[in-house]
Design a protein around this nucleic acid. Structure first.
Lengths: 340, 340
DNA sequence: AATTGGCACTCGAAGATGCCGAGTGCCAGA
DNA sequence: TCTGGCACTCGGCATCTTCGAGTGCCAATT
């Protein structure tokens, strides 16, 4: 027996009720709260079939039904319509983000906004260096043997590193090198920088090559560094609302949220802002197999420089969360585009 | 009746047992586990007096005693000796912090180290700008109407801001201004910068004053900005170990740890690394009245630029925590001093 | 063939009950 | 001042009972 429309309707009703009440839902409650036009007994038969299909389950014999991960998956893929944001939510997004003064501020505000809108845990990756292009490179001599290397990306991100040189270096050389590096890499993607600067040292006098190599090496270093992937998290206090399934699993979850590595895996590859990824329950790596994750990419003008999203219980309001994540990603992208 | 030595010894025993077992401790257990040389009955009499003094309390009639905030206070002030760190802990501190490449890295490592050592929540403030001195100021023209302002402090912190100018400006003026600002503020504390640059615009041609004022204003701005007080937090997962008192109060605690304002109040004024502050229970502001906080200042060569510390349950291992916080602060201070 | 009402059954949640024992306070004696 | 003895209190725990929500199945109806 296949799943006719009414059975799917029953599944949708179960998901919606369970999300809002956080309690297993029974056939009677369903008949009362939704206009399905059939009696509880009929619904029971449908539920038996949905259960056979693995879409819903009973926590224990005399309880109502709860959607399984598979059930949520079907709901998200085929049954849910995008819930439009309320005017208040739209206003919140604009007023929250409009005051941002620089990139750090944009990210900080975005993550807090998302946490507040979705009442879940928000995660925002800083625009990735490797996918950004270089707007400007600067070398500033601090002392004879110390140089400040500054890089500015098209997303407004400023990276700086202090380079300790093996020997003193004169200002003329620095200025010269600055001009050459600038010329070589301006407008390039970071991922292409390596090839572009590789041959630079050979253009210099032999005695200067050590110095030049040191600077070039640092520049390359900072491309692969830990800071390349900074991540902001907010709304961790919301996990207390995730429900009793998490009472025992709080520690692993909190640990996961402090681990860069886990978070990066979580956010995954940046997708275009118009595509949105939903990962449900066991579709996530181990520590997070009881959670769902909604992510999408963002960046100036639809170029996905980084990923943002939220982490919540599998029993989350998918349509609402999806709408919020999408709207925020689009608006942040606009702001970044305006600032370039 | 005053508190003779044995009663204080009983209090110490109660604190130590309660900290290690997390359970109210009774007279019998005390007599068994400590060599007090008296019988349980005697201990009971002593406990009755300690209770009258408000140093210990009974959760309910037929339970053992638990130290009150006042009891912990007395324990910390007069009964606890500093617990020397284990060699393993010393090694951990060194190996953890020695690999740090720059200030951000030092802070990031410190906060994780503290969380790991104390198994509590660690909080580290970035070296405060206003108490730092300026090592270097740089102005980098990015485009005709855009300048990058970079400031480097003696703690190695690099602050940068992009200044949008009202009109184009030529490079000569920028270079000139750079030299003047540099001369005026180098070596000064940030808090003294305002007075030092105030009169700068008047030294320029009338037509340039608008530009100069804009740059000076941004410079002053960045002194009072939100980023002035960045704070790193780690070990939030440890709150799950804080005990059942916190089960209900998890959300407020997590919220407090995300709120800059609360954290700043928590860390308070930076004290010298040799002084250490312990705030117990209700001595803390509202949301944290169930927690204890151990903080101390740190900075290059005993100049307290910022504060670091840990937040834990009132029932914490004070001697151990105090030793860890102190040792970490001292070592970080050394590292900062070495880098200046 | 699908739907429905009826009905017996299951089983967890929530109380009620009773016991156990840790811990106390008090007292009389050393 | 300390100690052993003793009666008392009361929370925790295990056990038992009750209650009812929810189910599956079946025979009757459409």
């Amino acid at each position: 027996m296949s799943l006719d429309d009414r059975k799917l309707e029953v599944l949708r009703a179960i998901v919606e009720d369970y999300v809002s009440t956080q309690e297993p839902v029974g056939s009677k409650a369903l008949a009362d709260r939704h206009q399905l036009g059939v009696s509880p007994a009929t619904i029971r038969n449908d539920m038996a079939i949905l259960e056979e299909e693995g879409l819903i389950a009973q926590p224990h014999t005399s309880a109502g039904r709860v959607p399984t991960d598979k059930g949520y998956r079907l709901f998200v893929d085929r049954l849910s319509t995008i819930k439009p944001l309320s005017p208040a939510e739209r206003r919140a997004i604009h007023s929250f983000l409009d005051g941002a003064v620089d990139l750090d501020d944009v990210v900080a505000r975005t993550v807090r906004l998302l946490a507040q809108l979705t009442r879940q845990v928000a995660v925002v990756q800083y625009p990735s260096l490797s996918r950004s292009t270089i707007r400007h490179v600067e070398l500033v001599p601090l002392s004879p043997a110390r140089i400040l290397l500054v890089m500015i990306t098209d997303a407004g991100r400023v990276e700086q590193r202090i380079v300790e040189l093996p020997s003193d270096v004169d200002e003329q050389l620095v200025a010269d090198l600055r001009a050459r590096i600038s010329g070589a890499v301006q407008g390039l993607e970071f991922s292409a920088v390596g090839a572009a600067v590789e041959s630079l040292p050979t253009a210099f006098e032999h005695e200067d090559r050590v110095t030049v190599s040191a600077i070039v090496a640092t520049l390359l270093d900072s491309l692969v560094e830990r800071r390349e992937e900074r991540i902001a998290v907010a709304g961790t206090a919301n996990i207390t609302r995730f429900g009793h399934e998490f009472d025992a699993a709080l520690a692993p979850l909190l640990e996961a949220l402090e681990e860069q590595v886990v978070l990066l895996k979580l956010l995954g590859e940046a997708t275009s802002p118009s595509t949105l990824t939903v990962r449900i329950g066991h579709e996530n790596p181990g520590q997070l197999s009881a959670a769902s994750v909604v992510t999408t990419g963002y960046g100036p003008g639809d170029r996905a420089l980084a990923t943002l999203g939220v982490v919540g219980p599998t029993r989350m309001d998918y349509p609402g969360t999806i709408a919020s994540v999408g709207a925020v990603a689009r608006y942040v992208s606009q702001i970044l585009a305006a600032n370039s």
